[in-house]
């Protein structure tokens, strides 16, 4: 009896261990492989790469050779900054307004604001393209900013609502009973306590905007090119090795950002909540 159980436990360790290792391998290996390939000397992206050189990074950073990519990067950053900025403002206001409200209408509004998370992005992207075109707007970065704000605001709402629900109501009561106005309480008590939540959400929203495909696919044009769409173009036609260099830069950026966010707001802890 005891022997059979230990055999069962052994098989458990073996099966679970193997599958988990496979999962880790599948998560990490492609990232490492792309990073390695980006330093290739050759003209194609085979693995293992032939030799070591920085030629694709040089080509990528060269303003005359890669002007289109640079413009796409600056467009993407601009859109992400504005959409996150507006998202933080409108999102934290809305969270303050309805997060602790038990009214049925507040719950409905909450679900409505989070719905872009489950709605297929392409459906909204196409809808936005038709809407903006049919009411007479010309394609511009402003429209992309508006579209990105809608699909990234749920991230800000979620983390802000989570921080608000952890806020001890006694703190607000004591502030108010000591004579502080509603605005003063907001400025000196509520906001400082929920700020890490707002910023964690803003960070996720910013990254989601940089990475957004479905909305940019429909709203961007040659003049308002966005980075993911440009990269898609680079993969679709001839496989341009500069894309490995772009990937290398983005991998490094994601890694550094992750470290910074971990130290400042404890991102992973917040995401597990």
């Amino acid at each position: 009896m005891g022997r059979r159980r230990s055999l069962g436990d052994l098989s458990y360790g073996l099966v679970i261990g193997t599958l988990a290792t496979l999962a880790l391998l599948i998560i990490v290996a492609p990232v490492v492989i792309v990073l390695t390939t980006s330093f290739t000397e050759g003209r194609s992206l085979k693995f293992p790469p032939t030799g070591f050189s920085l030629q694709w990074y040089e080509a990528l950073f060269d303003p005359s050779k890669s002007r289109q990519i640079h413009r796409a990067v600056s467009n993407s950053l601009e859109v992400a900054a504005w959409s996150t900025g507006f998202g933080m403002l409108l999102g934290s206001m809305a969270a303050l307004g309805i997060a602790r409200n038990r009214h049925r209408l507040a719950r409905v509004a909450d679900g409505f604001f989070l719905s872009p998370l489950v709605l297929p992005g392409l459906t909204f992207g196409l809808a936005a393209l038709m809407y903006f075109t049919l009411i007479g707007f010309r394609p511009s970065l402003n429209l992309i900013i508006a579209g990105h704000m809608i699909v990234t605001i749920p991230f800000i709402l979620r983390t802000t609502t989570a921080s608000l629900s952890q806020l001890d109501p006694a703190l607000l009561d004591s502030s108010q009973s000591l004579g502080a106005s509603w605005l003063y309480t907001l400025r000196r008590v509520t906001l400082p306590l929920i700020a890490p939540g707002i910023f964690a959400g803003a960070f996720l929203a910013f990254m989601a905007s940089i990475d957004n495909v479905p909305v940019s696919l429909f709203l961007s044009t040659a003049r308002t090119d966005m980075l993911p769409i440009r990269m898609w173009g680079m993969m679709e036609s001839t496989l341009d090795p500069r894309i490995a260099a772009v990937s290398g830069v983005l991998i490094t950026a994601a890694f550094l950002l992750m470290l910074v966010m971990e130290w400042t707001v404890g991102l992973t802890r917040r995401m597990r909540e």
């Binding site: 880790l24 998560i27 990490v28 290996a29 492609p30 990232v31 492989i33 792309v34 390939t37 194609s44 992206l45 085979k46 693995f47 990254m207 940089i210 990475d211 495909v213 980075l227 993911p228 990269m231 898609w232 993969m235 496989l239 894309i243 490995a244 772009v246 990937s247 983005l250 991998i251 994601a254 890694f255 950002l257 992750m258 971990e262 991102l267 992973t268 995401m271 597990r272």
Partner: peptide, 29 residues
């Protein structure tokens, strides 16, 4: 582990897709 799990989430989907072209391609890993 949580770092390894969350990091790909911050990495562009396009980059992750591209990675698989390098892995699965004719001359891939």
């Amino acid at each position: 582990l949580i770092f390894v799990i969350v990091m790909p989430l911050l990495l562009s989907v396009v980059v992750r897709t591209f990675a698989w072209i390098v892995v699965l391609g004719r001359e891939g890993v």
